[in-house]
Measured scan of single mutants.
Amino acid sequence: TGEEYIAVGDSTAQQVGDLTFKKGEILLVIEKKPDGWWIAKDAKGNEGLVPRTYLEPYS
């Protein structure tokens, strides 16, 4: 379980453990880390770190 967020920009994984996503994708945020990198899952079930500045709450 988690909260749904929509990507407001494209982000390409810079290192192992990062999640690549495109603008408009809905991501499920699993954990919000205080350093600004959140753990999220995409629609295909891929999981990784995403920069919170690229996400907005999805409603």
Results as ranks from 00 to 15, higher is better:
K44C: 13
L55E: 03
G48E: 01
F21M: 03
K23L: 06
T20H: 10
G9F: 15
L28K: 07
A7D: 00
L55A: 00
P34K: 10
K23I: 08
R52M: 15
I39Y: 12
V29Q: 00
Q15E: 10
Y58Q: 07
V29K: 00
G45A: 03
T1G: 12
L55R: 00
G9Q: 15
A13M: 08
F21H: 01
K41Q: 11
I6H: 03
D42V: 02
L19H: 02
Y54M: 15
E3K: 07
F21D: 00
G17W: 06
R52C: 15
W38S: 00
S11E: 03
L55K: 01
I26P: 03
E4W: 15
K41D: 01
G24R: 02
Q14I: 13
A7M: 05
E56M: 09
V16A: 12
G9H: 15
S11W: 15
P57K: 10
L49F: 12
P57C: 07
T1M: 13
A43H: 09
K22D: 04
G45F: 03
Y5H: 05
L49A: 09
S11I: 15
W37K: 10
S59K: 12
A40C: 15
R52T: 07
T12D: 13
Y58K: 08
L19P: 02
V50R: 00
K33S: 11
K33Q: 09
E25L: 02
G2S: 09
W37D: 06
T1N: 12
G17P: 05
V8E: 02
L28R: 09
D35M: 03
G45E: 03
P51G: 08
E3W: 14
V8K: 09
T20M: 09
L55T: 01
Y54L: 15
Q15Y: 10
K41V: 14
K23H: 06
E4A: 14
K41P: 00
Y58E: 05
P34L: 10
L55G: 00
L55S: 00
V50E: 00
L49M: 10
W38Y: 06
P34A: 13
A13D: 10
G9V: 15
G24S: 03
E31F: 11
V50H: 02
K22M: 08
A40E: 00
T1Y: 14
T53S: 14
D18Y: 15
T12H: 13
Y54I: 14
G36K: 03
V16W: 10
K23W: 05
L27N: 00
L27M: 06
E31Y: 11
E25F: 04
K32Y: 05
V29M: 02
A43D: 09
R52K: 13
P34E: 13
Y54C: 15
A7L: 04
G2Q: 09
G48R: 02
R52V: 10
D42H: 02
D18T: 14
Q14V: 12
G17I: 05
V50D: 02
A13K: 08
V8Q: 06
L49R: 15
T12R: 11
E25N: 06
A43I: 09
D42W: 00
A7Y: 09
E56D: 06
D10W: 04
E25T: 06
A40T: 04
E25M: 07
K32T: 04
D35K: 03
G48L: 03
E25K: 01
S11N: 12
P51V: 06
G17V: 05
D10E: 07
G45S: 03
E47N: 06
G48M: 03
E25D: 15
A40D: 00
T20C: 10
A7V: 06
E47Q: 13
P57M: 06
T12E: 12
L19A: 01
